[in-house]
Amino acid sequence: MRIVVTGGFGFLGQQVTDALLARRTLCGAPVDRLLLADRRVPAAAPVADHPLVDVVQGDLSERLDDVFRQPVDVVIHLASAVSAECESDFDLGMSANLDTTRALLDAARAQSAAGGPTPRVVFSSSIAVYGSDPAAPLPPVVDEWTLPTPQSSYGMQKRVCEQLIAEYTRRGFVDGRVARLMTVAVRPGEPNAAASGFLSGIIREPLSGLAATCPVDPGLRVALASPRRTVEGILRITEAVRGSGPGALEGGLPVNLPGLTVTVAGMLRRVAGDAVADLVTVAPDPAVEAIVGSWPASFDGARATALGLRPDDSFESVVKAYIEDHPEAIATGTTGP
């Protein structure tokens, strides 16, 4: 089986890659080759030298011939411009998220039309597809039957891609699956341009002894998932057999991955005590709050539950997992919740 991970050197791409290399199987078949496609490849990237790994560097829309030079069985499409940068640069978001995804789908379609395997394309969407429209306000609890009315360019681009994948699947061009991701926290490393990035920063930075800024009302409710649960969900949706009943992927609807509902204030006081949480300063940013505040915080997880997925046990468990996975990023003397 030849698997392509777009955005393969991004945070989630690395997590998915590590999981696949640890498992060495997907969909009941051995992983023969794993191609990581990304605009940037870090100079120090040991995985690039792994005997099963190939690397394609550059703009994905310009490198698709190289990606599909050999038959592709599965594409896990994680490459994306993120929320705040899509809001500040409309053309970037349209190109990186919408145009590139359509080009990828067309390359997969061409492979199938030429007699090759019909690729299984797994798309990482987002709860940003939801938003409260005056004519269709969000219900208190959201599920996959809730009408998506995105209130950001990023959310709109993800929603259009969902519909493209549904149409290409209906026509038999690809076997498309859509996983709607919650905000993933806690992410290690440098902050990115995602509007929700502060939800990692207000935990990550204090745990490393650094100050951080919270740009929203601490009473804001948000839905989170740990990296571990997110990767688990992506791979489970990739492997699910189409059909009905427990463990099967029924119909063409996206799957909202399980989320843990918390308040920002609740996150802060559960980090490692008041002294660490006091490193966070609240400084409202209306642009960030407008985006993140438009996303729902409570979900009916029946569709994910049917696939055997579950949310994190608690926010404390999310922080403990981060500390276990990234001990080098924790300041001396800091303890977990």
Rank of each mutant, 00 (worst) to 15 (best):
T25H: 15
A79C: 10
Q111F: 12
E144P: 00
A43F: 14
V72F: 03
A108R: 11
V122F: 10
S126F: 08
N97E: 10
C27R: 15
I76H: 06
L104W: 05
S124D: 09
G58Q: 12
S126I: 03
D32V: 13
H77C: 00
A44W: 15
T118S: 06
T149C: 15
T118N: 01
D54Q: 14
D54Y: 08
T25S: 14
R24K: 12
L35H: 06
L52C: 04
Q70R: 15
S124Q: 10
E85L: 13
L21Q: 10
I76C: 07
G131F: 09
P42G: 04
L26R: 02
I76P: 06
D54T: 10
P137T: 07
Q111N: 03
S124P: 03
A43G: 13
D89F: 12
V56N: 08
P42Q: 07
Q70V: 11
D38R: 01
H50T: 03
R39H: 05
A45D: 08
S153T: 14
T100A: 14
A135C: 10
P134V: 07
S80C: 13
A107C: 03
D99I: 10
L52I: 10
A114I: 08
A22F: 03
R109H: 14
D133L: 06
Q111W: 11
P134S: 06
R33G: 04
S83G: 10
D32S: 13
L35V: 14
L64E: 04
G115W: 12
T149P: 00
L36S: 01
D99R: 15
P117K: 10
L60C: 03
D73V: 00
R63K: 14
P139D: 10
P150T: 03
D38S: 11
A84C: 04
P119E: 07
D38Y: 00
P117M: 11
S132Q: 09
L92A: 06
L21W: 08
R102T: 09
S83K: 07
A128Y: 14
P150M: 05
T100W: 04
S126P: 07
L138C: 06
A113W: 09
D133P: 00
A96H: 11
A113H: 10
A128K: 02
A48L: 08
A48W: 06
R39S: 09
P119R: 06
V41K: 07
E87N: 01
A43T: 12
A113S: 08
A108E: 09
A114S: 15
A48Q: 01
S88N: 09
A84Q: 13
H77I: 00
L34S: 03
T146Y: 09
L34Y: 08
V72C: 02
A44P: 00
V82Q: 00
L104F: 02
T146R: 11
S126R: 04
S83A: 14
E62K: 11
L34H: 04
D49A: 15
D99G: 02
A79N: 05
A22Q: 13
S152M: 05
A81R: 09
D91L: 15
F90C: 04
R109T: 08
F68E: 01
V55T: 14
D106F: 05
T101K: 04
C27Q: 14
P117T: 09
V142G: 03
P117V: 11
S112L: 02
P137S: 08
D66W: 00
F68Y: 11
A81F: 00
P140S: 12
A113T: 12
V75N: 05
E62R: 13
P30I: 06
N97V: 02
S61K: 15
A103L: 13
S80T: 15
